[in-house]
Amino acid sequence: MNPLRALSLTRRVQLALLVGALVAGMVLPHVVSSFILRLVTLALVSALFAMSVDLMAGYAGLVTIGQAGILGTAMYGVGYVASKTDGGIALQITVGFVAGMTAAVIFGLMAMRSSGVYFILITIAQGMIIWGLASLLVNITGAENGLPGIRRPVNIESGFRYYYATLVVVLICSLALFVVVRSPFGHALKGLRGSETRVRMLGHNSAFLKFYMFLVSGFFATVAGILLVYLNEFVNPTDVILGASALPVLMAILGGIGTLIGPFIGAFVIVFLRNWVSLRVDRWQTLMGLTFILVVLFAREGLVGAVSAWWHKRIDGRDGGVSSVLHEPEKREAVLSESG
């Protein structure tokens, strides 16, 4: 018997898409130019970063616009060792990791009591503090001029090899996130979205839960930061500006928030809008803004939500979503009372 027969049409299509994407990912470097390959690498890193934001924004309903603070601290950790000392790759990565996680701990302690719009605002402040430090501490960060002289590990130095390294790390992290959102911890996080009282009734302390959320999410942001700094071989304060923190949120919402595949799609769309379409269209920022507006108006649940809705309406009305994680529409009233 063909075991595929046991699966519904939706599941089979999902499987086919997943396998297709993996195969495409493997053969891609042999097909496209090294410029496109760099963009794909950047999109993969951005996707990981956006997933780390989505864990908070999508699953727990807590939108952070300061995550570049964690990503950037990790980048600066690596960059400082590479640029200002003669430490090797192992030391660079260790320092970058510790720096990123330290930022995550501090962010968590600061924000674990907030929720709703205030959570958004405090995270904006966090990101801006890191930006302030980056622009201020000339001796450590090089301020506006940034930290040059960062080099990739020798064995993955070429763009070709670095792509595969990134692909592997991002896939492993995606898998880990897949496990996390299905764990009891993941379910508790989803509880935060509805109401915090419910979480408390279930026996969780919401402040601690948010703190752990920062640690887990911060871990993935840190990994993304380390990947990004070796991709660019450069770091400066523009990596931690407000816009850098807003982009992953936009990627997640655009693709479909509260799913893991959504941030991937959003990341690819935005990275290519910013770096590829912009080569052809002068007014690419208008185009990007209009994309956001159109998605909100006509595909409220993001691109994944729209495709999923179309699929179930036209093709297969039986089974769960196209996305790997069920998407719950946001509850309007809950949000209203939360932010009030």
Binding site: S34, F35, N275, S278, L279, W284
Partner: peptide
């Protein structure tokens, strides 16, 4: 001629494009 959006990270990507493509 290419736009770097006043951002060094974008400038790096653009530089790759100019060199490779």
């Amino acid at each position: 001629m290419e736009d770097n959006a006043s951002d060094p990270a974008v400038a790096l990507t653009v530089a790759t494009k100019l060199l490779e493509v």
